[in-house]
Amino acid sequence: MTNIPGTQMTDGAPTYLGRGDPSGRFADYRPDWVGKMADDVTLEGSILDGAVKGRDAVRAVIGGARELYDRQDFNYAGPWGDSSFIEDYTAEVQGKPVGAVHLITFNDDGQVQHIVVNYRPLSSVMFFSRLLREKFAGTPYAEYYLAGEE
């Protein structure tokens, strides 16, 4: 078993219910990887049905999701292995708690090649997906999200 110092203890409580980094070390964090996407970058995740491909499409989808956050508090952001980066944060969308983990993988040129975004809990994932379908109504991005009250 790996011993990781500084691991956040949860006492069985879901981490998405809490606020992010209380020490404020991520208060000014802005992900610089967003400006380093490959032309053919792909995005997939628990909120999407399918994979979004292409720099403009991925930026539109990520930007649209962030616009719906009431707040976003990072717990961790940093390197993961030799060619990846990870972000862990909590957020709220219309008062509903959301936890997220992003795994960003870079190609040999240092550009973002693939992004996986996993949200939790399931009830918030479904709610958020429906909101994003409404937000992107009339665009090609709407079809990636849930429709109605399934």
Results as ranks from 00 to 15, higher is better:
residue 63 G to E: 05
residue 79 P to R: 15
residue 73 D to L: 00
residue 32 D to F: 02
residue 83 S to A: 12
residue 45 G to H: 00
residue 53 K to S: 12
residue 68 L to I: 13
residue 67 E to D: 13
residue 56 D to N: 11
residue 73 D to P: 00
residue 41 V to K: 02
residue 48 L to P: 01
residue 75 N to C: 13
residue 82 D to W: 05
residue 45 G to I: 01
residue 64 G to Y: 04
residue 34 V to Q: 12
residue 31 P to T: 02
residue 39 D to A: 05
residue 81 G to F: 03
residue 80 W to V: 14
residue 47 I to F: 07
residue 34 V to L: 05
residue 47 I to D: 00
residue 47 I to Y: 00
residue 59 R to C: 11
residue 39 D to G: 11
residue 61 V to Q: 05
residue 33 W to D: 02
residue 67 E to K: 12
residue 42 T to P: 04
residue 56 D to K: 14
residue 35 G to S: 11
residue 48 L to V: 04
residue 44 E to V: 07
residue 75 N to E: 08
residue 83 S to R: 15
residue 54 G to T: 15
residue 81 G to A: 11
residue 32 D to V: 08
residue 79 P to D: 15
residue 48 L to N: 08
residue 44 E to Q: 12
residue 55 R to V: 12
residue 67 E to F: 04
residue 45 G to T: 08
residue 35 G to K: 14
residue 45 G to D: 00
residue 32 D to S: 09
residue 58 V to C: 10
residue 81 G to T: 14
residue 46 S to T: 11
residue 72 Q to L: 05
residue 75 N to W: 15
residue 55 R to L: 08
residue 32 D to Q: 09
residue 63 G to I: 10
residue 51 A to T: 13
residue 68 L to H: 10
residue 68 L to V: 11
residue 82 D to E: 15
residue 59 R to D: 07
residue 62 I to Q: 03
residue 74 F to G: 00
residue 63 G to Q: 12
residue 43 L to N: 01
residue 42 T to D: 15
residue 65 A to Q: 11
